[in-house]
C-alpha cells in the first residue's frame, strides 16, 4: 500500500465558525492530516516553541486576531531560526493591498481570501491539499 506522509497543519484562527469551516472542509475532502489549532499569534508561538504538538509543516494563518495578529506572528516566526522555513498560507477576509504586501514580504506561500460560500471553500481546501502533497520537505 502506498503510505502517504501525513502533513501536520497548524491553523491560527480566532473565529470558532471559521475553525469549524476548515475542519468541515477537511472532512468533505477526506483530508486526514492532523490539524492543530491556535486562537491567536501568541498561542501559536507557544505551541510552536513547546513540545505539545509535532512541528507543523504548514500553517494556515488569519490576519485579524486579538493579542498578536497574523502579521506580527509572521514577523516573529521568520526571525526564529527554528521556525522560519515553515510554509504559511494567509487566509483572511482582508482584501487590502497593504496586508497583501506585508504578508508576501514575510514570504508567505499564498494569500487567500476567505470565500463567501462553503462550496468554494471546499474546493479551495482541496487545491491546497494537492499542493501540500506535491511539495517536498526536509525530513526534519
Amino acid at each position: 500500500m502506498n503510505e502517504e506522509k501525513l502533513i501536520n497543519i497548524l491553523l491560527v484562527e480566532d473565529d470558532e465558525v471559521d475553525i469549524m469551516n476548515v475542519q468541515r472542509a477537511f472532512r468533505k475532502n477526506n483530508i486526514n492530516n492532523p490539524l492543530f489549532i491556535a486562537r491567536n499569534g501568541l498561542e501559536a508561538l507557544e505551541m510552536l516553541r513547546g513540545d505539545k504538538i509535532p512541528k507543523p509543516h504548514v500553517i494556515i494563518l488569519d490576519i485579524n486576531m486579538p493579542k498578536m495578529n497574523g502579521l506580527e506572528f509572521l514577523q516573529e516566526m521568520r526571525s526564529d531560526e527554528n521556525l522560519k522555513r515553515i510554509s504559511v498560507f494567509v487566509m483572511t477576509t482582508s482584501n487590502e493591498d497593504s496586508d497583501k504586501i506585508n504578508a508576501y514580504n514575510l514570504n508567505v506561500a499564498g494569500y487567500i481570501l476567505k470565500p463567501l460560500s462553503f462550496e468554494k471553500f471546499i474546493s479551495s481546501m482541496s487545491t491546497l491539499n494537492s499542493y501540500w502533497k506535491l511539495c517536498e520537505r526536509p525530513s526534519l
Binding site: R24, T93, S117
Partner: peptide
C-alpha cells in the same frame, strides 16, 4: 462593511451545515 462580513459568512455557513 468589511467587519460585518465575518459574522454574515458564519451565519451563511452554519445554515448550509
Amino acid at each position: 462593511s468589511h467587519d460585518l462580513n465575518a459574522p454574515i459568512r458564519a451565519i451563511s455557513n452554519l445554515s448550509v451545515w
